[in-house]
C-alpha cells in the first residue's frame, strides 16, 4: 500500500472515529461513522483484501448505517443531544491510559517488526474466498451457521421491533 493512500484512508478512519466520539448531535455522529467505515474499507483494499473492502462498503456503509439512521429517526429527538463539555472530564481521564496503550502498541510492534519483509504482491481474493467458504474442511460449517444466525437475527429483529397491539 502506498504511503498516500495509507495516510488518507487511515486519516479518514481516525477522524471519523474521533467525530463519532465527540459530535454533540446523534445524526452527525452517524455520518462520521460513515466516514470511519469508508476509511477502514480503504485500508482493507490497501491490505490486498479487495472482497472484504467491498463487503465493508456494501454491508456497513450501505446497510448498517441506514439501520442507524432509521433508528435515529424513530426515536425521540431531545434524547439525542449531548453537551460537549460533558465529555471533557471523562476525556481527560481517558487520555492517560490511551497514551500508554498507543505507545505500547507502537513501540512493541516497532521492535518486533521493525524491518517488514518484502510483502508478496496482493492477489485477487474473491476466487479463493469463494472456494474457502464452500470447502468442507475450511469454512463450510461456519458459513452455513452464519446464514442461520442471520436468518434468526433478522426474524428476531422484526419480531422485536413490531408494535404490540395491546399498548
Amino acid at each position: 500500500m502506498d504511503s498516500f493512500s495509507f495516510w488518507f484512508f487511515g486519516g479518514c478512519a481516525l477522524v471519523g472515529a474521533t467525530l463519532v466520539a465527540l459530535m454533540p448531535r446523534l445524526v452527525h455522529s452517524a455520518f462520521s461513522l460513515v466516514l470511519a467505515l469508508i476509511g477502514v474499507a480503504g485500508l482493507y483494499w490497501g491490505l490486498g483484501a479487495d472482497f472484504l473492502g467491498g463487503v465493508q462498503l456494501l454491508v456497513y456503509v450501505g446497510g448498517i448505517t441506514i439501520l442507524f439512521i432509521y433508528g435515529i429517526m424513530l426515536t425521540p429527538r431531545d434524547a439525542t443531544r449531548t453537551k460537549l463539555t460533558a465529555l471533557l472530564f471523562p476525556g481527560l481521564i481517558a487520555v492517560v491510559p490511551v497514551a500508554v496503550m498507543l505507545h505500547l502498541a507502537w513501540q512493541g510492534l516497532a521492535v518486533a517488526f521493525h524491518a517488514p519483509a518484502e510483502l508478496a504482491e496482493p492477489q485477487p481474493t474473491v476466487d479463493a474466498i469463494g472456494r474457502a467458504f464452500l470447502t468442507r474442511d475450511q469454512y463450510l460449517i461456519p458459513f452455513e451457521l452464519a446464514s442461520l444466525v442471520l436468518l434468526a437475527a433478522l426474524v428476531g429483529a422484526v419480531f422485536l421491533a413490531r408494535r404490540r397491539k395491546e399498548s
Binding site: 454491508v59 456497513y60 448498517i64 442507524f68 442471520l150 437475527a153 421491533a161
Partner: peptide
C-alpha cells in the same frame, strides 16, 4: 473479518429492535 461483518449486521438489527422497544 467477513464473519465479524456478518455478526455485526445481525447485532445491529437485533439491537435496534431492542432500542425501539
Amino acid at each position: 473479518a467477513i464473519f465479524i461483518v456478518i455478526l455485526a449486521a445481525a447485532e445491529a438489527a437485533v439491537a435496534l429492535g431492542i432500542v425501539l422497544q
